[in-house]
């Protein structure tokens, strides 16, 4: 099986400061990839490289057997959808129009019936159809997040990148968002990258995790393979206890003094 995305020896520098070094990954379609790691470890930079927001200083990113650096802006926009961490405050538009913006890479003069149908379909998929004419300034954080994802889906991308999508959401919305993203990834056979801080959430929903430290991949694989006590201690510098419940793992931070107590339980 040909992998949808192949990242080959990618590096990126902010000025002289290296942000990514020798990133090599190869991932098939249909998987949800969680990028984890401390602040400044390169999660966001890697996502920005994948979306074409920044150009890697070295290495290649191959999407669907096309070199990302050889693609035009619009071609790339038809392949990769992006959901940023913070939504800049725009002039108000109805939800429908905000999602219709996702069709812009496909538009010539005006949206076709097909374009409008794609938007309609995605709005119902995202449970936004009943409020499609509401202004986006009136939405809650969770609704806004869904609108952003809907816009990215309207691009009909093969790759979806979400930068810390669960920030600013309460636990219920965090869970429903991750659930939604996982289902979308599988049903549409996309490849989705999320950068995420919550290790439990990441392990619960992601098919694979990429643990970054100082711009390098420290470990990658299934959540069970990546989230070990040693890895977490080496990358985050904290001690954790890891409990296993069937397929699920739970990570609980502990003080040194508490470790012994927990190990007794």
């Amino acid at each position: 099986m040909v992998d949808l995305v192949t990242i080959n020896n990618v590096s990126f520098n902010y000025g002289k400061i290296p942000a990514l070094r020798n990133i090599t990954l190869s991932i098939p379609a249909g998987s949800l990839i969680g990028m984890i790691g401390p602040n400044g470890s390169g999660k966001t930079t890697l996502i920005r490289c994948l979306c074409g927001l920044v150009k890697p200083s070295g290495g290649t990113i191959i999407i669907n057997s096309k070199d990302l650096s050889s693609l035009g802006r619009r071609d790339l926009a038809r392949l990769v959808g992006y959901v940023p961490q913070v939504q800049e405050k725009p002039f108000p538009v109805p939800i429908f129009d905000a999602v219709l913006a996702g069709r812009i890479p496909h538009l010539e003069w005006a949206p076709s019936i097909y374009d409008l149908d794609v938007v309609s379909h995605i709005l119902s998929l995202m449970d936004l159809e009943d409020i499609s004419q509401r202004n986006i300034n009136t939405l809650s954080g969770g609704q806004m997040q869904r609108v952003q994802i809907a816009r990215a889906l309207a691009q009909e991308p093969l790759i979806l990148c979400l930068d810390e999508p669960t920030n600013n959401l309460d636990i219920k919305h965090q869970l429903s968002l991750m659930n939604l993203v996982r289902n979308l990834t599988r049903n549409r056979n996309m490849l989705t990258f999320v950068s995420i801080h919550d290790l439990n959430l990441a392990s619960q929903y992601c098919d694979r995790l990429v643990l970054l430290k100082n711009g390098e991949i420290f470990s990658s694989g299934t959540p069970q393979e990546v989230l070990t006590r040693e890895n977490v201690r080496n990358v985050f510098g904290i001690n954790v206890a890891i409990h296993t419940h069937g397929d699920l793992i739970h990570i609980v931070p502990v003080n040194k003094a508490d470790v012994r107590k927990l190990e007794h339980i």
């Binding site: 926009a77 990769v80 002039f91």
Partner: peptide, 20 residues
């Protein structure tokens, strides 16, 4: 007009929608 609409979605989003 479509570029202006894209820019209204946010700077980075507009860029990932293919707008310079």
């Amino acid at each position: 007009r479509w570029r202006y609409n894209a820019i209204n979605s946010g700077e980075e989003v507009a860029r990932t929608l293919g707008v310079d």
